[in-house]
Computed example of a mutant assay.
Amino acid sequence: MRIGEVARRTGVSVRALRYYEEQDLLQAERSSGGQRQYPDSAVDRVHLIQQLFAAGLPSRSVRGVLHCVYSGTVAPGLLDQLESERERISGRITGLLAARERLDDVIATTRNPPSECTHARVLGAPARSAAAS
């Protein structure tokens, strides 16, 4: 399939697909007219690349993971690097979960403030004055 079709099916820009090629993450054959031709498996590969980038892995780590996934062999040092990346991701997840819990608390308190709270219920709404109470 051509580059535009891969882009459409994956939701990734043509520019990003070219970048993946430059980084040796994705390979394409060239037609006689010089157009890129990708195998159907490129769609799944691009989705994996996107997941790995979204997790914050650098291109060199992504390259190593792809090699391992598609060849079944692990380059020396890759396992240690992947374990380190996994720990980093787990730390980010823990931090994001804590931030979400804090936001949940703020939302709940804002929607249903305790009776002793004298602040407005909705952020941005004018506060009630003591004279109006």
Rank of each mutant, 00 (worst) to 15 (best):
S59D: 00
A55N: 02
A28N: 04
S115A: 12
E116T: 11
C117T: 01
G56I: 05
E116N: 09
Q50V: 13
D24F: 08
P114V: 10
A108P: 04
P39V: 02
I89D: 00
T109K: 12
S31G: 14
M1I: 11
G34H: 05
C68M: 12
L97T: 13
S84R: 15
P113M: 06
R36V: 12
A98Q: 15
C117E: 12
S133D: 09
R8A: 15
Q23Y: 02
F53R: 06
A55D: 05
V14F: 06
R15N: 01
G4P: 02
L78Y: 04
L97F: 05
R2M: 07
R2F: 10
L25C: 05
R102G: 11
G95T: 13
R128W: 06
Q23P: 00
H67P: 00
E21R: 11
R86F: 00
A16W: 06
A42R: 10
R100F: 05
E22K: 12
R36N: 14
L97A: 15
V69D: 03
V122P: 09
R18E: 06
Q81D: 14
E116G: 05
Y70W: 09
D24C: 10
P126L: 11
Y38D: 03
R30H: 14
Q50W: 02
I3G: 06
P126E: 13
D40L: 09
S13M: 00
G34V: 14
A120V: 10
I89W: 03
A75C: 07
P76Y: 02
P58S: 07
Y38L: 09
E21Q: 15
P113H: 02
R9I: 10
R121W: 05
R45E: 10
T10N: 13
L17E: 09
I107F: 10
G91D: 07
L48G: 02
V106P: 00
I107L: 15
G56T: 01
P39L: 14
R2C: 01
T73F: 09
D40R: 14
S90E: 07
E101Y: 03
E83G: 09
Q51E: 12
L123I: 11
G64I: 00
A108K: 10
A108Q: 12
V43I: 15
S84L: 10
G4K: 06
R88N: 06
E29M: 13
R15Y: 08
Y70I: 03
P114A: 14
G77W: 04
Q23T: 01
L57Y: 03
Q51D: 09
P113V: 03
R111E: 12
